[in-house]
Each structure stands twice: as structure tokens, then as C-alpha cells.
């Protein structure tokens, strides 16, 4: 077995392992789809973060702020459409959600650009300061959201056509979760295509391995990094929209809560690795749902246990990035 493909097996392996524990096939199917949906959303959020670290060694603990922000922008844009969203057909719903999502991504991308300039740039190469100042940035963002939209939890209703489940055999599969899996897959494939088939993508992968050499070839890595930061922030915004709809409510603190999960994911995956981030996110999503069902008390720790187990097996994560 190719060493590169081995970690991919972990996802079906975890799912199969859970089957006898869960016991009933329909419940297992429901949990598995829920886990995959959650995993895909986490991947959308974490994929930018892992490249931000890989490319410039920047630890951005403020990444979660873009999750909350994306969700709130979507909520604000959806508010006036609430009536039509409730009754629209599936196709019409998607047609309305596309501009909602693009608005959330545009705002988070633009704020990301400012965040990089004001908060990240002064602390290039200084990890401790990065951790402190980006956490500070996140707290400020959280307070600003509360100041604008209020401190209370706000319900984010699923559009009418996305509510409810499809019955596959005896298993109830929530429609929205299927949609989230589809969107996550689309983002993953688009990202793989960009990273493998475009010159910018090749430069990002090269830069993750050896920044100095990319600069010596005549490319400005800082410009590349700003681009990655903005794209990563916009993806976190997209993830925030997906996550808000998944939970069906949003709070200013939702970003901080997801932040823990995404750091677990990028550590499991190997810092800087997109494929590792994908596998890690699916594992974390599945693990959270299986343990939430089997043993709610350990659900909170299950992902930390997962991370520990994987790091014991591969201390650099599933896909260690060369030179790091």
C-alpha cells in the first residue's frame, strides 16, 4: 500500500468500526452522513488556515472570527428574503443562497485583507506575538458582532425546501446535510484543481515547502500569501454560513468554538497539507457524531483522543509537509 494513500483508509475504517457499535444500520447511516457533512464544513473552514500556516508560518488564532462574521452576514442578507425562502422551490432556493453566500465571502475576504495588513503583517515570524494578537483580534471581532447584532443567539432557519429528510431504506438522511457534503466536495475538488493544475497553485505548494526558493525564482511570496489569506478568510466565511445553517442558529462565539476543532484538524492532517486537512476534517466530523451518539460524555474529548492517537502514529500528522 502506498504510504500516501494509507491515511485515506482511516475514514471508511472509522465508519466501519462504528457500525457494530452503533448497532442499527439506519442510525449509523444518519450519523455517518451527519459526520461527513460536519467534516466537509470543517474542511472548508480549515483548508485556508493550513495553507496560511504552511506558506508563511503564521499561526492565525483569529481564523474563527471569519466563521462568525460569515454566518452573521448571511443572516442579515437572508432576513429580508425570509418569506420567499420559506416557500421557494429547491432550485429557486439555491438561486437565492448563491448571492447570500457570495456576500458573506466578499465581506469576510475584504475583512481578511484588512486583518492581514493590520494584525498579521507586523508580527511575521514571531509565533508568540501572532498567537496573542490574533486571539485579541478574534475577541475584538466577537465584541463588534455583539455590538452590531446583539449578544443573543439568533435562529438561522433553513429555507423550506432544505428542511426535512430523504428516506433511503429506513435511514433518514437530512437534505441539508447532503447539500453540505456536496458543497464541501466541490470546494475540495476546486482546491485540488487549483493547487495541482494552475501556476498559482504550484507556487503555493512550492512556497509551503521552500519560501526562499520561490522568492529566488522571482516570485513575491508576500503577494501570494495575501491572496491565500483573503481566499482562506472567504472560505471560513463560506464555512460559517454552512455551519450556521447546520446548527440552525448563530452566536458571536460560534467561531471561537469551531476554532478548537479546526486546529485539531490541521494538526492531525499535517500543517500545510490540504489532503491531510481533508482527511482530518472527515475523521473529526465522524468522530464527533459517533461519540455524540454512543457516549455523549466523552464526545467533548473524543477529538483530542483522536489527535493524540494519530500523532502517536505519525508525529508530523497524516501528511507531513517536506522541510517542516
Amino acid at each position: 500500500m502506498n504510504r500516501a494513500h494509507l491515511p485515506l483508509i482511516l475514514v471508511p475504517a472509522l465508519a466501519l468500526l462504528a457500525l457494530p457499535l452503533v448497532g442499527s444500520l439506519p442510525s449509523w447511516a444518519t450519523l455517518t452522513i451527519a459526520g461527513l457533512a460536519m467534516g466537509m464544513i470543517i474542511f472548508v473552514i480549515a483548508s485556508g488556515l493550513t495553507l496560511i500556516f504552511g506558506l508563511m508560518d503564521v499561526l492565525n488564532f483569529g481564523h474563527g472570527a471569519f466563521i462568525s462574521l460569515g454566518a452573521y452576514v448571511a443572516m442579515a442578507v437572508m432576513l429580508p428574503m425570509a418569506g420567499s425562502l420559506e416557500t421557494a422551490s429547491f432550485a429557486a432556493t439555491l438561486a437565492m443562497l448563491v448571492p447570500v453566500t457570495l456576500a458573506a465571502m466578499a465581506v469576510t475576504g475584504a475583512i481578511g485583507l484588512a486583518f492581514e495588513r493590520v494584525i498579521i503583517r507586523p508580527v511575521y515570524g514571531q509565533h508568540l506575538k501572532q498567537i496573542l494578537i490574533t486571539m485579541g483580534g478574534m475577541i475584538v471581532a466577537e465584541e463588534l458582532i455583539k455590538a452590531i447584532w446583539g449578544p443573543q443567539q439568533i435562529p438561522l432557519n433553513l429555507p423550506g425546501s432544505l428542511k426535512g429528510s430523504l428516506l433511503v431504506g429506513e435511514a433518514a438522511i437530512e437534505k441539508y446535510r447532503l447539500l453540505a457534503v456536496g458543497i464541501g466536495l466541490a470546494v475540495f475538488l476546486a482546491m485540488l484543481w487549483t493547487l495541482n493544475r494552475t501556476k498559482i497553485g504550484l507556487l503555493i505548494r512550492a512556497g509551503v515547502q521552500d519560501r526562499e526558493m520561490v522568492e529566488s525564482l522571482g516570485y513575491r511570496i508576500r503577494t501570494l500569501f495575501v491572496g491565500v489569506f483573503v481566499a482562506g478568510s472567504a472560505l471560513a466565511g463560506l464555512g460559517g454560513v454552512l455551519w450556521g445553517l447546520y446548527q440552525q442558529n448563530i452566536t458571536a462565539a460560534m467561531g471561537a468554538q469551531v476554532n478548537v476543532l479546526i486546529f485539531i484538524v490541521i494538526i492531525i492532517g499535517g500543517l500545510g497539507s490540504t489532503a491531510g486537512c481533508f482527511v482530518g476534517a472527515l475523521l473529526v466530523g465522524l468522530m464527533a457524531n459517533y461519540t455524540g451518539f454512543l457516549a455523549p460524555k466523552v464526545a467533548l474529548f473524543s477529538n483530542i483522543l483522536l489527535m493524540t492517537a494519530i500523532l502517536l502514529w505519525r508525529p508530523q500528522g497524516l501528511y507531513p509537509v517536506a522541510n517542516r
Partner: peptide
Amino acid sequence: PENMGIFTD
């Protein structure tokens, strides 16, 4: 460079 700077991936 002395270490060649090859992008091995």
C-alpha cells in the same frame, strides 16, 4: 542554493 531548493512534492 547549496541545498538545491528542489520542490520535492
